[in-house]
């Protein structure tokens, strides 16, 4: 019992630190692609946190919408931005 509680505390503490670290990396790291991938990871860790907080409904919504669909939207935007960049570079060089 005591060990389980202790493990629970350790897991909670770890999740909090990972969450903060991921958020910081998303906002500070070099490269947008990496930021977006880290953001998706952030969403997945967050849905673990929702499970720890006895909020399984929120966890489901977060994993599907927060991490999954927001992530897909971000990635597709990134792809389109890259395409735009390429076009502009061509315009500039011609």
């Amino acid at each position: 019992m005591a060990i389980a509680t202790l493990l629970g505390w350790a897991l909670d503490g770890l999740l909090m630190l990972v969450l903060l670290w991921l958020a910081w990396r998303v906002l500070a790291c070099k490269g947008l692609f990496r930021a977006v991938v880290l953001f998706i990871a952030f969403g997945l860790v967050l849905s673990l946190v929702w499970v720890r907080l006895d909020a399984p409904d929120v966890a489901l919504a977060e994993a599907a919408i927060g991490a999954g669909l927001t992530g897909a939207l971000l990635l597709s935007t990134l792809a389109r931005l890259d395409a735009l960049d390429a076009k502009q570079d061509e315009d500039a060089s011609s």
């Binding site: 489901l60 919504a61 669909l69």
Partner: peptide, 25 residues
């Protein structure tokens, strides 16, 4: 399943819609 389950446990329209949306994506 999520939709039907929403009446008794975690699940419901938003989660079901999100999974449907993910399938669509």
């Amino acid at each position: 399943y999520l939709l039907w389950r929403g009446a008794t446990g975690p699940g419901g329209a938003f989660q079901a819609g999100a999974v449907l949306g993910a399938a669509g994506v």
